[in-house]
Design a protein around this nucleic acid. Structure first.
Lengths: 238, 238
DNA sequence: GGCGATTTGTACGTATGTATT
DNA sequence: GAATACATACGTACAAATCGC
């Protein structure tokens, strides 16, 4: 762990515990540099991350104001997975694997980062239950060239991301997400007990590894009355 | 304009024009530093912005790969306004002001960053038409203490953000956004010709200025079949 | 309003570590 | 193993914004 990462995590922890209260200023960069025994640049790097994630707002000549967004924000706004989400929210949840088989690349993925027609993918369908009701149906398409052994059902029921990152040592890095409303398909209707003329919310993501290779496409179908997405956003000017 | 801002904008432009093709590497940091006549740190600062916005992906020991996300992504994912959105998309659009009056602070805003009961707000309701159909209803609550003169109707029909930033010299900095589905209210039903049991998508935002003062609350009601949200997201580890 | 003191922002140069080819 | 390229870290200097006197 780098110094700036440790310092960033440390300050974040102190904000969450109220040691640095919301609405107040952090100590100055020079004071923090002295306190941690590092250079000012290292403090600035640590603070940059806190600024990006909504923990602080910096203002030239004044200081770093503590905000209170990150503590409420849904991790879904990042790339964080369902499993991490439910852990952080303490809901009663269950996952059922509805399908887990190898298929040729679906048409809408052919051409994406060199995906060829017929290239093998793992097609995984899972239902997510909260308090006894199915509220999400996940469709995952995973590139076999990256995970030759597929995904064991036992893993699919827990967290595929943890498996990829810790067991397979894959670095999941970024994604392009789209949120749209669609009419419920057959699986949605059956699993979530809704009609064919009712809408669900789809969150579609293209997921990439650290070296920018395409790895996974996911389509999450959310029951419309249970869907919520929250994010902290900064205005980009240039 | 700072050096790193100029360089960031310059490289971005060259990516968009295909001078740096998607999937290829940018020149090395040292080469770029020589080319622009700046230090390597300045190049890295410029590249950091391009990485945050989805233009490039950096990899240690290898280089900076050009991505193709930013060119497609909806500006709505930042704080960019409706007017900027329609300009960038070239749709046939129109805005109608349905309401523009001063009201006491609504209950759900009292307590937010020191908002007191009875504190005056401007309540603005606008309908957005595309190709002759109303597809969005915007409800804006603007803090009168920040904009004492309110918003002229002529401005409200174009872009309030441009007015705030250029005329009033306000620095809009960040927002907390929430996306949920709700049943259409009376105004939604009337303006978008939909029934009381149909859903709309609400994008609710708390908007803040550079000094972290709360400035505006907006609730955007989108016709469900016209709604789309897209964003580029990086995985945050710690 | 002006003038310092403080604080953050930018820029540079150097050194060292680490990943990739 | 060598060369290349990115990542971190430090120290310095100056610019720009804020605040209190």
């Amino acid at each position: 762990m780098y110094k700036f990462e440790f310092i960033s995590a440390d300050i974040q922890e102190k904000i969450l515990q109220g040691f640095y209260p919301v609405g107040r200023l952090l100590p100055s960069e020079n004071d923090l540099a002295k306190h941690y025994g590092v250079s000012r640049e290292t403090i600035r790097k640590a603070q940059k991350r806190l600024e990006d994630t909504g923990f602080i707002q910096k203002q030239q000549g004044k200081g770093a104001i503590v905000l209170d967004f990150a503590r409420f924000s849904f991790p879904i706004s990042g790339l964080t997975s369902y499993k991490e989400l439910q852990e952080s929210k303490q809901f009663q949840t269950a996952t059922r694997v509805l399908m887990n088989k190898q298929i040729p690349a679906p048409d809408f993925l052919v051409g994406e980062d060199g995906v060829e027609a017929g290239e093998p993918f793992i097609y995984l369908i899972r239902s997510r239950e909260m308090a006894g009701e199915t509220v999400i149906i996940d469709h995952d398409y995973l590139r076999v060239s990256v995970i030759p052994d597929g995904v064991p059902d036992a893993i699919a029921e827990v967290s595929i991301y943890q498996y990829f990152e810790q067991e397979l040592n894959l670095q999941i890095s970024f994604a392009n997400k789209e949120i749209v409303a669609k009419l419920a398909d057959d699986i949605d209707q059956k699993e979530m007990s809704i009609g064919p003329d009712e809408y669900i919310i789809q969150v579609n993501s293209h997921v990439y590894l650290e070296d920018a290779t395409f790895f996974q496409y996911t389509s999450s179908h959310h029951r419309i009355d249970k869907f919520r997405f929250e994010e902290f956003a900064r205005r980009t000017t240039h």
